[in-house]
Nucleic acid binder design. Structure first.
Length: 1064
RNA sequence: GCAAGGAUGGCCCAGCGGUCAGGCAGAAUCCUGAUAAGGUUCCCCACGCAGGUUCGAUUCCUGCUCCUUGCACCA
């Protein structure tokens, strides 16, 4: 706690800087997403949209999605949020494509994590205190309450993410009886198939939690231990010793043998007047480095030859039990052989073997050599009376005592501290102790693992390597599954055993009904301690009492049973839409979890399905990575944890949804950066602006759609950009459909983003703008709005899975009013069908060519100082082949390049007035020569822009009519403008225009004088600042930035714009 | 030790035999009555290292280094 590193900030707060595009989010025009989200979430609930959805899809085919249950220890973290969002996208998409999605969320509620939390709250130190001070029933009740309280909290967090249309009122919860019975059923099925057995094996146990732990519950951490080299005196030889090494001195109490590798070479070495035996490969280094002498090898032998060499156990006097072993077993305290577990890489090549304290020791010492698995420890890791003088000592404290004793006896050679990895309890971080225990196992190794491998090969994994490599490797190494835990908070093992010695009767019950029938008793609760009270006479020997095995089930088995155990929650009380019996369970069509679930849920699901029914549990699996922060894992201790709330508050849940979807790569970690997160908001903002613009346009024009769909519209509407956007839309919908069908949510998000930003916002809406202006052709304008409407309607549908709130907003507050038969919610609509006939690859390709050409013309104009709004005389494109058939795009080129004429040629010789450029193999020329009409228009364009700017400055709205007076002494200016009076009236909402040399209007609302360059061939607006600066500097002249001419300030042409509201 | 995934310009992240990444950040400039936006240019001359295949490799192959994750081991 006190070290300097932890003094850094404790939590990763979102940065306070605001990128330019995010400034002033509380401005009048700002789109404040979080507020809107809360409003829509509320609206969904008040309008019972979810109920409507369920009603609608009742008769549809089932898409069986199963939610991997998060553990109810506390608030969700950002990874859980990510996980739920991805699932939500698929759920929404599948719904829209006509499936009844099983959308039941789940919660994992049993197990050690909650017990540990409760123990902290209740301040208990061990299991005994739980039973004696608290009472098991009270303890269980508080665990239950804790889990349920957390569950409600998490429910709300998930809903806030936009994951609203899930069955939050009825999640599956592993602590409910219906669920627990599902686990019982599974264990009973496994028992019937002969796959349940009791094993007597050394297991890692947590001395604090007093229970056995499975491998996936180990947490390796570095630990400092004392390692020692000691010598064992060889019996029958005067001065000869076996030298061994160990990092766990306390296990010497239970030492039964020494293991040697039969193939390894061993030497007898003379040291300090004694003969030591050890591996040849180790002797030189050990003796020189650790003892400080030069070894003298006096003989060599193989491991094989060492076999049977008996030695004196160093703690024979302290542990009397060892004397018994020495007498009872001729091979006790002798060298035994193991090829597999003995190497010369470390230690001395002779390995101390304590069969009661290690799996390998057990295998070689107990299973192969039939030596006793001596394990004189209790549940709390203390020596039992069999431990002799060490009785009552905690093993990790006993280390020092053992070492002291060895020192005393002179058998200790070297003592050193080593820092090595050691297994710790995943929950309480206590170092684990191997002990031999009776535990219950499911036979998942061997034949069953092979079955799983076969089934796994048929499963569709995304990404592919997750199944083909990662999970495959896991299954290859799969071993029997120890399912018993010596704890309280879990599903009790449904196994009853007979108290009579010799009566091996075992009864496994599959349900409450069955238990009540067999026992003749009412069962209050399937949990401990209530179920422990159920005892009954053994039906086999008729003498003994059948008593439940004390243990509870490994919590991973809980969630592994979800395919059937959740039936009640998923299908409702009447099970009208699903299987009632556990027997008839259906595999999931789709699951999605993080890569930690390879050994977790993916594994337990597969195991439970095969164990109970020899069937696979899932068809499509998506595996994701973890969320990291700036390249590092998020850890509370590092203080770099980003909470979902923080992100939501900053930019809204929909921004978060887009961020974590578009930035992911299947199976890989999502690297969180605040900068990128903020950037994702731009997509949302652009999208929103598209709809706002359309809404304004539609309102202004009183638009009412007439066309049934795009296809029928385009039968009459021959406009190329309408046909182009229709094609792009359908191409995009097609690609999005394919992506989502393949569970590639990132690709879907990218296609959607590109479509919104590039095609709709920067592309179509820009192209269509002029057609929507006041003076445009009515027919064309109507077509444009029709197309725009169809486009936005389709867009609102395809964005619904990822932007459920924004889609709802644009539907509810805008588009639905224009639909013939609008649904109440966009989420009651269907995913659009691709109109393949509207996809025109040629058109799309041609548009790209045009796009490149236009890009080039902009570049050329910039270089030549020709503003885009100034019209040019002619654009010439020259290419041998590319331009064939592109004539139909000439109007767009003309408009977008702002030229009066477009010429397509195969070759062209440019003249003096031509600018030249090149775009993707097409030669581009712009004729920049001006005639009088062009020049007048050029001037007018600048003027018009300034007029619009001043309208805005005068806080006039679009559509507000004004009377305008332009006062200037320049007759030339008045002449130029006179040509465009009608245009001004139409496009700048002016009812009357006066061109004059003297003020005529009285009382104007707004007046400003503009200055223009006096050069009659230039006549561009001069910035007020430029003139001001020149005056300040005492200059008499001002330099025009366009024609570069120096002009006396008094010659500058003043043009005053004066206007007032019409009718006012 | 075994296995998997990754390594791309100041930062993030695509692509995966030849032709263009994209975004952010920085600089300049233009533009703006849907957009508290946008365009254009510049900067960044990118593909972990070493070999090989190939007419050509960031992309395929081999080896190596480093990161991440999982598995095994930790006597």
């Amino acid at each position: 706690m006190g070290d300097k590193k932890s003094e850094k900030q404790q939590v990763s707060k979102a940065p306070s800087f605001k990128p330019q595009y995010l400034r002033e989010l509380d401005g009048p025009k700002s789109f404040v997403l979080p507020q809107k989200e809360l409003e829509v979430l509320k609206w969904w609930r008040e309008n019972k949209i979810y109920a409507a959805l369920q009603e609608r899809e009742k008769s549809w085919p089932e898409f069986r999605f199963i939610d991997g249950p998060p553990y109810t220890t506390g608030a969700i973290h950002i990874g859980t949020a990510w996980n739920k969002v991805l699932k939500d996208i698929i759920i929404r998409y599948k719904r829209m494509t006509g499936f009844r999605v099983t959308d039941t969320p789940g919660y994992d509620t049993h197990g050690l994590p909650i017990e540990v939390q409760m123990e902290k709250q209740l301040k208990t130190k061990n299991k005994k205190e739980i039973v004696e001070k608290i009472g098991m029933d009270k303890f269980i009740d508080s665990c239950k309450k804790f889990a349920i309280d957390n569950m409600h909290l998490m429910n709300d967090q998930f809903r806030r993410l936009g994951c609203e249309f899930w069955n939050w009122d009825r999640p599956y919860v592993t602590l409910t009886e219906g669920y627990m019975a599902g686990a019982w059923w599974m264990i009973k099925k496994a028992h019937e198939r002969g796959l349940l057995f009791m094993g007597h094996r050394p297991l890692n146990t947590c001395p604090r939690c007093e229970t056995a732990l499975a491998k996936h519950e180990f947490e390796y951490a570095n630990r400092k231990d004392t390692s020692i080299f000691i010598k064992f005196k060889v019996i029958g030889k005067e001065n000869e010793y076996l030298v061994i090494w160990t990092t766990t001195p306390w296990t010497l109490v239970s030492n039964i043998a020494v293991m040697a590798n039969p193939d390894l070479k061993y030497v007898r070495v003379k040291v300090k007047g004694e003969v030591w035996i050890m591996a040849e490969a180790r002797h030189a280094m050990f003796i020189q480095a650790e003892i400080g002498e030069f070894p003298e090898v006096i003989g060599s032998l193989t491991g094989e030859e060492l076999k049977g060499t008996r030695y004196v156990h160093p703690l024979l006097d302290e542990v009397p039990k060892q004397q018994e072993f020495h007498k009872a077993y001729p091979n006790a305290h002798s060298v035994i052989l193991s090829r597999e577990f003995v190497s010369a890489d470390e230690g001395t090549g002779l390995v101390h073997c304590a069969p009661g304290h290690g799996p390998e020791d057990y295998q070689v010492g107990h299973v192969e050599e039939k030596l006793p698995a001596f394990s004189p420890l209790d549940d709390q890791g203390r020596y039992t009376p069999e431990g002799g003088v060490f009785a009552g000592k905690y093993v990790f404290d006993a280390n020092d005592d053992v070492i002291a004793k060895l020192k005393e006896k002179g058998t200790l050679l070297v003592e050193a501290v080593i820092d090595h990895e050691y297994a710790h309890c995943w929950r309480c971080k206590t170092p684990l102790v191997y002990r031999v225990l009776d535990q219950w196992y499911l036979k998942t190794g061997g034949a069953l693992a092979d079955r799983m491998l076969a089934e796994n090969a048929k499963i569709n994994w995304v990404p592919n390597f997750a199944g083909g490599k990662t999970f495959y490797q896991w299954l290859k190494g799969l071993q029997d599954w120890c399912i018993s835990r010596q704890r309280f908070w879990g599903i009790p093992l449904p196994i009853w055993t007979c108290s009579t010695k010799g009566c091996s009767n075992i009864i496994v019950t599959g349900s409450r009904a069955e238990l009540e029938q067999i026992s003749g008793q009412k069962v209050e609760d399937l949990h401990r301690p209530w179920v422990d009270n159920i005892k009954f006479k053994c039906p086999k020997c008729k003498k003994g009492t059948m008593k439940r095995v004390d243990d509870v089930v490994d919590v991973w088995l809980d969630s592994g049973c979800v395919m059937w155990a959740s039936n009640e929650a998923v299908y409702g009380d009447d099970y009208a839409l699903g299987p009632r019996g556990y027997e008839d369970w259906r595999p999931a069509d789709f699951i999605l979890e993080g890569k930690d679930q390879i050994r977790g849920w993916f594994n337990s699901l597969m195991s439970c399905g095969i164990l109970s029914s020899d069937r696979p549990t899932y068809k499509n699996v998506v595996m994701t990575g973890f969320v990291t922060f700036e390249g590092e894992p998020m850890h509370k201790s590092r203080g770099n944890v980003v909470s979902p709330e923080e992100a939501i508050e900053r930019r809204g849940a929909e921004t978060f949804r887009m961020y974590c979807t578009i930035n992911m790569s299947m199976g890989e970690d999502l690297n969180f950066y605040w900068r990128d997160f903020d950037d994702s908001f731009r997509i949302v903002n652009t999208l929103w602006n598209c709809f706002i613009y359309a809404k304004e346009m539609f309102n202004l024009n009183g638009f009412k759609p007439k066309a049934k769909d795009l296809a029928s519209l385009l039968k009459k509407d021959k406009n190329v950009e309408d046909r182009w956007i229709a094609s792009r839309l359908n191409s995009a919908v097609k690609a999005m459909t394919e992506s989502l069908d393949g569970y590639d949510m990132a690709k879907y998000a990218k296609i959607l983003r590109d479509f919104i930003v590039e095609d709709v916002s920067k592309g179509y809406l820009k192209l269509v703008k002029e057609r929507l202006s006041e003076g445009a052709d009515e027919k064309d304008k109507a077509n444009a709005m029709e197309a725009m409407f169809q486009l936005l309607r389709a867009l609102s549908l395809v964005m619904a899975p990822i932007f459920p709130v924004i889609a709802e907003l644009v539907h509810r507050d805008f588009l639905s009013a224009l639909l013939a038969a609008p649904t109440r919610s966009i989420h009651l609509d269907a995913w659009p069908k691709v109109a393949t006939g509207l996809i025109d690859a040629r058109l799309e390709a041609d548009f790209e060519v045009v796009g490149k050409v236009l890009e080039t013309t902009r570049m050329m104009r910039e270089e030549a100082g020709l503003k885009l709004k100034w019209p040019c005389k002619e654009l010439v494109l020259a290419a041998e082949k590319k331009l064939e058939g592109i004539e139909y795009l000439v109007p767009i080129l003309q408009k977008e390049a702002n030229v009066k004429k477009v010429t397509l040629a195969t070759s062209f010789a440019p003249g003096e007035n031509h600018l030249a450029g090149e775009a993707g193999g097409v030669k581009v020329y712009i004729d920049k020569s001006m005639d009088e009409a062009l020049f007048a228009e050029k001037f007018y364009r600048d003027f018009f822009r300034q007029l619009q700017f001043l309208r805005k400055a005068a806080r006039l709205n679009v559509g507000d009519m004004i009377v305008l007076e332009v006062r200037t002494p320049s007759a030339l200016v008045r002449d130029h403008l006179a040509r465009f009076v009608e245009d001004i009236k139409k496009n700048a909402f002016v009812s009357d225009v006066k061109l004059t040399a003297k003020n005529e209007l009285q009382k104007v609302d707004f007046e400003q004088e503009l200055k223009y360059c006096p050069d009659e061939t230039c006549l561009v607006p001069l910035k007020a600042k430029t003139i001001e600066n020149a005056t300040k500097a005492g200059k008499k002249v001002v330099t025009c930035s366009y024609c570069n001419g120096e002009h006396p300030i008094e010659k500058v042409i003043p043009v005053a714009l004066r206007f007032k509201k019409s009718g006012a």
